[in-house]
Structure formats: C-alpha cells, structure tokens
C-alpha cells in the first residue's frame, strides 16, 4: 500500500499559541483507501491538528499537502473553503449542523463548492441552473439514502435525534465530494448500537466511495476494529504509529494511557 503516493501528506507541522506548542512537529500520511485513526489523551492537540490542516488555523511551521486528481497541492494558509474545495471534508466534535434548514438542504449546502450558479442564475433560473439544482437534489437525496436518513429529508435538522444529527454531519461532508474525510470524534455520545452502525457506515464509505478516512476517536474498540493504521499523540507530539496491533502492545502508549505503574 505504501508504494502509492499519500493523499494527505503532513510534514512536520507545528502550531504555537504564544508559548504553548499545541502541535509540535507532527508528520502524518494517509494513503488511498485507508482508514487512519488519531488517538491520544484529552488535550493532546488532536482537534488543533485537524484545525491546522482544514485551514481554521494556519500552522506555525511545516507543510500540508493533499493529492486530488493526481495533483499535489499545498494547503498551508488556505482558507477553510479552499481546503474543502481541494478535497478535505470534515465533521466537528460538537455538532455543527444548520439547525433551521431541512435535512436535505443541509446536504445540498455541501454541494456548494461543486456547483456554480450565482445571483443571475438564481433570479432567472435558466436551464443550466435548473439542471444544476436537480442534480444537487438528486445527489443529496442519494447520499441521505446511503446513510439511511432519507426519511427525514424534509424535516428541520434541529428536530433530529442526536445520533441522526451526527450522521447528517457525515452526509453533509460527503456531499463536498472529498478525497479524504476527517471525522472528529464521530462516536462520542452514541449508544453501542449507533456506534456499530457508525462502524458500518465508515467501512461503507471506504469501500464504496473510495474515500479515505482520518478520524479522531476515544472509543478504542472502534478504533482497533476499523483502522488500518493508528497514530498516537501526546502533548502535541507524535508518540507512536503503527497497526492497531502494534499500538495496543506499545509500552509507551500503554504508559501514556494507563499511567506509570502499568508500564
């Protein structure tokens, strides 16, 4: 697998807030058709790392590259919307859906960066705009079907149960047609049944859509179950990386997670 070029290539990025090094010289690669997990104790800098590569923060040092359609592009300093256009889509730790829009519309918003119509098209509703609109609806509805959300299509997003809102965030991110999906604690707050459904969804995205996944997660069972590789972060640094098996036997990781006496 490693012979291929990585679709996400992070080289030695650091993020400093004043004197605090929230992310310190971290390198990470995600290859095509791969599920990679990023784990670590609370406050290790995982979400900051996500924010650095999705353009919410600009990393202090280092480079981030993404490969889309055979072209390698540097992401540093690009705005979040440009990063999404280049093929990284993400969900958020605390749900950030558009509460007062319908479920279908939420997903349709995700199509924004793959469609074009603007003021004139909106007002005149010419043939091209109508066509685009129909395609958007169809694309979005299909996505909802895949995630089993289509029965809520015309419901207000705020009225969905928590688990469905989390799925909606994934559907919305998928609508941007990404090469890599970044999930920030997708299983947080889900019950065991929903977690197992999430596992299937993630596998399905990888198998059917050919989209790689990088996820932050605290649910070790889920991580060990679905990941091809795992990165472990602690205090902004990379502690270890390897297959789930290697990680679960790494003494450093065990020490970081369980404390000194278990080492």
């Amino acid at each position: 697998m490693n012979k291929k070029e990585p679709i996400l290539d992070v080289k030695n990025i650091s993020m400093h807030f004043g004197g605090l090094k929230a992310v310190d010289k971290l390198s990470l690669q995600v290859y095509p058709d791969e599920i990679v997990a990023l784990i670590g104790p609370n406050g290790a800098g995982k979400t900051t790392f996500f924010n650095c590569i999705t353009g919410i923060y600009e990393p202090t040092l280092g480079d981030v590259f993404v490969l889309r359609d055979g072209k390698k592009r540097r992401l540093n300093g690009l705005k979040p919307n440009k990063v999404t256009e280049l093929g990284l889509a993400r969900t958020f730790q605390n749900i950030r859906i558009f509460s007062n829009m319908t479920v279908l519309e939420n997903v349709m918003v995700g199509r924004h960066c793959r469609t074009k119509s603007w003021v004139i098209g909106a007002i005149l509703r010419d043939k091209k705009t109508r066509q685009e609109e129909i395609e958007t609806i169809e694309y979005s509805y299909n996505l909802l079907e895949k995630l089993d959300l289509h029965k809520f299509a015309n419901e207000m997003a705020k009225n969905l149960p928590y688990g469905a809102q989390k799925k909606l965030e994934i559907a919305r991110a998928l609508a941007t047609d990404p090469v890599l999906l970044l999930l920030d604690e997708p299983a947080a707050g889900l019950n065991p049944q929903e977690t197992s459904e999430l596992k299937d969804i993630i596998n399905k995205i990888k198998e059917e859509e050919k989209i790689s996944i990088l996820l932050i997660e605290h649910d070790m069972k889920l991580v060990m179950n679905i990941s091809d590789r795992v990165y472990v972060m602690e205090s902004g640094r990379l502690l270890a990386q390897g297959t789930p098996r290697e990680i679960s036997q790494n003494p450093e990781v065990i020490k970081a997670y369980l404390g000194e006496e278990h080492a």
């Binding site: 999705t54 979040p80 958020f92 829009m101 918003v109 469609t115 098209g121 919305r172």
Partner: peptide
C-alpha cells in the same frame, strides 16, 4: 423568493446558522 431557494440563498442561511461549518462546506464567507 427565487434567491432564498437557490444555491446562494442556502449559502446565506448556512452562514447565518453556523459560520465555521459553512466555511467547512466550501462556501466563501
């Protein structure tokens, strides 16, 4: 009426609802 039910209108409402998520959807704020 046409604007609010268009791609642009949805982008406006998304912006109103959550700016950060809106940008993460590829919308130029």
């Amino acid at each position: 009426n046409r604007l609010q039910n268009s791609r642009l209108g949805r982008a406006w409402i998304a912006l109103r609802e959550d700016e950060i998520a809106c940008q993460a959807m590829g919308i130029d704020k």
